[in-house]
């Protein structure tokens, strides 16, 4: 991982800020988001690092991060953020950028276990496909 002027000046931050409507530069890295995230242990890049990587234009590290698919948009982090950054929206923007660039979907109905298809509530299925597919 290396920070360069080219990366910092890349378009990714602008695109993420536009799609999310959030100001990535507002974050001062207190990391309160990460401290309270209920699924942080499953993430490779922590929520405060997502914002830091975005500030530094570390596009590859962001777009390859498992975190984009782990965040459950529970909004615990943004409800405590002292800088009023809606982090799930930033993560959502990255997910959208990625799904658009790669075209593929993260989740396909064929990959769901029969047990899940059988028992899961409609609410869960609709949510998952809204999040994970385009």
């Amino acid at each position: 991982m290396k920070v360069t002027t080219d990366k910092i000046n890349s378009n990714l931050i602008k695109e993420v800020e536009e799609v999310s409507g959030q100001k990535v530069s507002a974050c001062f890295q207190c990391a309160k988001c990460t401290g309270g995230c209920p699924v942080v242990w499953a993430m490779d890049v922590y929520p405060h690092q997502i914002l830091r990587y975005a500030q530094l234009g570390l596009a590859d590290e962001l777009l390859n991060s498992k975190t984009l698919w782990i965040c459950a948009s529970c909004q615990t982090c943004d409800s405590r953020c002292p800088r009023e950054v809606d982090i799930p929206k930033v993560i959502e923007a990255l997910r959208l950028v990625l799904l658009r660039a790669r075209g593929g979907n993260y989740l396909h109905p064929n990959n769901l276990p029969a047990r899940v298809l059988e028992n899961a509530p409609q609410q869960g299925l609709v949510s998952a496909f809204r999040k994970y597919a385009r």
Partner: peptide
Amino acid sequence: RTECCGSYLSMANEEVAATAVGR
């Protein structure tokens, strides 16, 4: 009582949801 249960992660990342539920 207000910690996330994993929400829709149970569709695609079951082990994450399972751990959240366990806590």
